[in-house]
Design a protein around this nucleic acid. Structure first.
Lengths: 214, 214
DNA sequence: ACCTGAACACCGTTCAAGT
DNA sequence: ACCTGAACACCGTTCAAGT
């Protein structure tokens, strides 16, 4: 009956069994209730999963560091990283973020925070909007690799590196050369691209080139 | 019986009904066969979907422009754009790319092509590997928004803009200010972030700063 | 008012039985 | 050898019936 209790259980269930095995029956069982009861409180499975996404976004603030007076770049990076860290705690929910713009208060709050940093820094609204979209899609796209599907044939990271190294060097010379770094630490790779995006933004600032922070 | 014929039909079916409605029964029916026959040729649904991804990647080369002697930046962008254009033709397959590293020949070919550009430009293997990962995840993450789920409440683009503009400006000032540009043309937004990433890469080139193309 | 067992029309997958 | 109808154990969703 209490809606929050249902979503709590739903997040737990997705964390444990993944979105593919998540079912209304399992959820009802975990709540000691029946599926028909769930339908008295939610339109259906999809609505519950949408609220699972919102609940996860509600944890992002837990991963914000204390940044008293950081540069706009560091603030943006901290925001993107907070989302990434949150998704790391709920890796099996990431695919729920696909094909879905988060409209709930937590989704809007994250968007608002990022746009606010960009606008107050002096970016024009159009650039700010595009920058936010670029960063958001980058984080989600990257987070999708947090929980590699176990159906993937060589599914351990080590196996993947071995696989790349075992390729024919005549046919895939560049891949074999890069194999020891493919895939590296997901954390490092994530920050690498994030820095590229955020620092590249500077050239779209109207007062480009000069400008001291603070 | 012919494996290619099955995958052709599977791509068609995912394009038409989406991955959620895709089923072995529908696929068998379209082939004038039975599900049990499909299991004689494929381990299961997941294996078929993996091959659907490979088949889609096989179309990427169709979207490469002729670039006789372009800069490494333009070559990278062209490659990322070719993938993006391909996914635009099969928007409902994008979620199949999630949680899945493409191991087939077409997936490897794309990786090899990108790494080859980067290594021959002079990037160290570690940077090349990270750059490839960043670009790949960016493209996939962005392409995920190509086919917005119809379960999303305000699902037409115009409705989305209207929704953002209807928010309380006191609570979401930055979002409301950026509303006319949120979401803009997906194509424009995609290229904006792509340029950021690719041009940001230049600072990781050992011979940074100078260096004339061609 | 609030809940639910049982049903409906589906799934993915398997297997005995057909040619 | 190659195929398949029918079954098994599940789904999401609904509804008549219970308290």
């Amino acid at each position: 009956m209490p809606v929050d209790r249902v979503i709590d259980a739903a997040v737990e269930l997705v964390d444990e069994v993944g979105p593919r095995e998540f079912s209304m029956r399992l959820l009802a069982q975990r709540l000691g209730s029946s599926t028909a009861t769930l339908y008295r409180h939610f339109a259906g499975k999809d609505e519950i999963l949408v609220q699972v996404v919102e609940r996860v976004l509600g944890e992002v603030h837990l991963h914000y560091p204390d940044l008293p007076a950081a540069s706009w770049q560091d603030q943006l990076i901290a925001g993107a990283d907070a989302l990434f860290q949150t998704l790391k705690h709920h890796p099996r929910t990431v695919s729920l973020f696909d094909n879905h713009v988060p409209f709930g208060p937590h989704g809007l709050a994250g968007r608002e925070a990022a746009l606010s940093i960009l606008l107050s820094t002096g970016f024009p609204p159009e650039i700010a909007a595009k920058a936010y979209t670029a960063v958001a899609h980058y984080v989600i796209g990257f987070a999708g690799q947090l929980h590699l599907d176990s159906t993937t044939t060589p599914d351990e990271t080590q196996g993947l590196r071995t696989f790349y190294r075992s390729l024919d060097p005549a046919r895939y010379p560049a891949t074999v050369t890069s194999a020891p770094h493919l895939p590296g630490s997901l954390e490092d790779e994530f920050h690498f691209g994030l820095q590229l995006i955020v620092h590249g933004l500077a050239r779209h600032l109207p007062s480009e080139g000069r400008g001291l922070p603070g």
